[in-house]
Design a protein around this nucleic acid. Sequence first.
DNA 1: GCGACAG
DNA 2: ATCTTGTCGC
Length: 170
Amino acid sequence: MRVHALHEWEVSTAQAREIQLSLARRVVAENILTEPRLVAGVDISAPDAQGIARGAVVILRYPEFELVEVQVATGKMEFPYIPGLLSFRESPLILAACETVHNVPDLVLIDGQGVAHPRRFGLASHVGLFLDLPAIGCAKSILCGRHEPLGEEAGAHADLLMMANQSEQR
DNA sequence: GCGACAG
DNA sequence: ATCTTGTCGC
Ligand SMILES: [Mg+2]
């Protein structure tokens, strides 16, 4: 991995604080934390009659949404779909596709839940951890948790509330 | 025991 | 997720 700056310091604690402050300002100025430059999107096909499916990952430059890279992996679906265990079905092919990516993204978007999961470890959590990258679960429907009714307008939102007791999800 | 249940 | 039938809206 490339290291972007000298990381051995001969400085006083006061200088260390000054350096830290300037680095923190640089992070904000360059949007290193808030503005990803490369965003990955991953999904998987339905298996064919023989159980063969494909996992795909696209890398887009952000915010231009310019296509940077596409990788696809093919293999057999071994695990059935069981609510709460989707990552055991989908993550192998997703990770296989990600293994061949050259342009490492800053963020991965995933078609499934992340922490909105009975054990707080859905597909997006699983893939994000195994890639050691920030990941956002972009599920199209709810696995567990409840929310107040949504407005009709586009972009309406509500907090998804999870039960504190994980074995007592609603 | 019953119902709910990402993809 | 897919498949099939019926219905809805442009
Ligand atoms: Mg999907």
